[in-house]
Each structure stands twice: as C-alpha cells, then as structure tokens.
Computed example of a mutant assay.
Amino acid sequence: MSGERPILLVDDDRALRETLAEQLTVDGAFAVTEAASLAEAQVRLAEEDARFDAVILDVSLPDGDGRDFCAKLRKNGVKVPVIMLTAADDEADVVRGLEAGANDYVAKPFRLAELLARLRVQLRVFENSEDAVFMIGPYTFRPAVKLLQEPAKNRRIRLTEKEAAILKFLYRANPKPVPRQILLNEVWGYNASVTTHTLETHIYRLRQKIETDPTRATLLVTEGGGYRLDLPPDVEATSRHERK
C-alpha cells in the first residue's frame, strides 16, 4: 500500500473520466480506479483486496441511476465519502442525491480545483468520524475515539491525541518511512518549541502500548531517519477490505 489515496471514479464519459483520473493522480496524492458503468463499479468494489477512500459517482450511467447505486452502497455498509457528479443541479435533484447518502454534489461542468477541494474536505471529515476504521497489525484502530482494539485478546488500548495522530499519519504513508521532522510538523505543526525529542518520547510510549517487545519493535519500526508501520501483506489486505 502506498501513501496515495485510492479513489473509485465512476463515469461513462470516457474523455472526462480519463482526464479526471490523470489530474487526480498528477501530484501523487490519489490513485484512481476507473469504472464506466455501475456493473463495473460493483465488480471493483467486490474485489478481494478492494479499498477505496472515496467514490466519485456520476448520476446518469448507462445501466442505472448513480443515486440508487449510492443508496445501495449505504445499505450494504459502505461509509466512505461519495461525491455525485451531475449535469442537473436543481434543488430537487440535489436533495434526492443527498437523501440517497451522497456527501456532496458537483454540477457539470466544474473546475477541477473545486472538485479536489470538496474531495479533500470530505476525506478529512470522514477520517475524524466515528465510522473511520483502520487495521494496524493485530489492532482495529478508530482514530476518532483514539482507541486500539485487539480482538484476539479482547484488549482495548487508549491513545493520547498525539499517539492517534502519529499512527494515522504513518498508516497513510505506509509503506514509505516518514522522516522525523515531517512527522513532527504534521502532528505538532510548525512549533519551534517542539523538538524531535518530543516525537521520540511519544514513539517510545506508543511502542510500550502496541509492541509485544518494545525493545525490539516489529510494528512501529525505525527506518531511514524516521518511522514507518510494518504491516504484513495479509494485514494490508484486511485494511483495504475494512475501509471499503
């Protein structure tokens, strides 16, 4: 798994779809999976290792209405953000889409910058919601409530705000290591009074909570002048499935 955010893009307009996919991936922030129909989207979602952080979904598709598909996703427990694309943006149309479970509505034609901004907002909102769940090693991680659960041992681990933020950022960057200074800036902001020693202290305490042997870290490892989460392939697959 890379630091790119996996997005499912469903639109039957090939030119628009390919242009959107290209622009979304240009800065390395997103990895886009394309689908030209609802049937193809369903296949993508049902794949064993499927993981999507958001769905961009056209309203009018050759094999059905995107709003009905969105409602079906919600009924099946898919909670990630869904942004609808539509050529009709009258009030009744928007209300119907929102009632189907869509998080936002973007009318065509639209500016790419606007779509990106709305997508990022929805991703941030979801990550801080009660619904966001990530798998980290043997743990189920719920960042909104700063909680790790280890089902095999029926154990719950309470995290501090900074510990939860460290885990969430490392999870997003996996499998790439995050340099200490970057992690420090992301979690504490650009605060001159906070040093890398502060980060190292938090890493030490976090390892005391999550590692079987904190002196020989196997989950939260030191690498390349920073840290990364060492997630086995089977655990990564579980994470993807969990977050569909």
Results as ranks from 00 to 15, higher is better:
Leu73Thr: 00
Met135Gln: 12
Asp68Tyr: 09
Ile56Arg: 03
Gly224Lys: 13
Leu206Ala: 04
Ile182Lys: 15
Phe69Lys: 05
Asn103Pro: 00
Val10Ile: 12
Asp63Tyr: 09
Val194Ile: 15
Arg96Leu: 08
His241Asp: 04
Ala144Gly: 02
Pro143Phe: 01
Arg67His: 11
Leu219Lys: 06
Leu61Gln: 07
Leu20Cys: 08
Ala144Trp: 03
Tyr204Thr: 14
Lys168Thr: 10
Val187Tyr: 01
Glu22Arg: 11
Met84Ser: 05
Leu123His: 07
Tyr171Pro: 04
Arg228Leu: 15
Glu211Trp: 13
Asn191Glu: 09
Ala164Met: 02
Glu150Thr: 03
Val32Gln: 02
Leu148Pro: 01
Arg155Asn: 05
Ile7Gly: 02
Thr196Pro: 00
Ser239Lys: 03
Met1Ala: 14
Ala71Lys: 11
Val94Cys: 14
Glu4Cys: 11
Asp65Ala: 13
Leu229Lys: 02
Ala71Ile: 02
Val221Thr: 15
Leu147Asn: 01
Thr160Glu: 07
Ala50Trp: 02
Glu186Ala: 11
Leu116Met: 12
Asp53Ser: 15
Ile203Met: 13
Thr195Leu: 05
Pro62Asp: 07
Thr215Tyr: 07
Asp65Gln: 11
Ala31Asn: 09
Leu206Asn: 03
Ala36Thr: 10
Asn128Pro: 11
Pro6Met: 04
Thr140Trp: 14
Tyr227Ile: 08
Ala152His: 05
Arg228Gln: 15
Arg158Phe: 01
Leu20Trp: 06
Ala217Ile: 06
Gly101His: 05
Ala15Trp: 03
Leu9Val: 03
Ser2Trp: 12
Glu99Asn: 15
Arg5Trp: 06
Ile56Pro: 11
Glu242Pro: 07
Val145Asn: 01
Ala237Gln: 14
Arg240Pro: 04
Leu45Val: 09
Thr195Pro: 00
Val106Gly: 06
Thr215Asp: 14
Pro175His: 10
Arg111Cys: 09
Leu147Phe: 02
Arg240Val: 06
Val125Glu: 12
Val187Gln: 04
Val32Tyr: 01
Lys75Leu: 11
Trp188Asp: 01
Leu147Thr: 08
Pro6Gly: 02
Glu34Pro: 04
Ile56Phe: 12
Leu184Arg: 15
Leu8Lys: 02
Thr86Tyr: 08
Ser37Phe: 05
Arg17Met: 04
Gly66Gln: 02
Gly28Trp: 09
Asp12Val: 05
Pro6Val: 08
Lys72Trp: 06
Leu57Arg: 07
Leu219Thr: 10
Asp58Trp: 12
Leu61Tyr: 05
Asp27Met: 05
Asp104Gly: 08
Glu223Met: 03
Leu9His: 02
Arg216Lys: 15
Arg118Phe: 06
Val133Lys: 14
Asp27Tyr: 08
Pro109Trp: 13
Pro81His: 11
Gly137Ser: 10
Glu130Thr: 12
Glu236Cys: 07
Lys79Cys: 01
Val178Ile: 13
Leu159Gly: 00
Asn185Gln: 09
His202Val: 06
Pro233Gln: 04
Phe169Arg: 14
Asp93Glu: 15
Arg5Tyr: 06
His197Lys: 14
Asn128Ile: 04
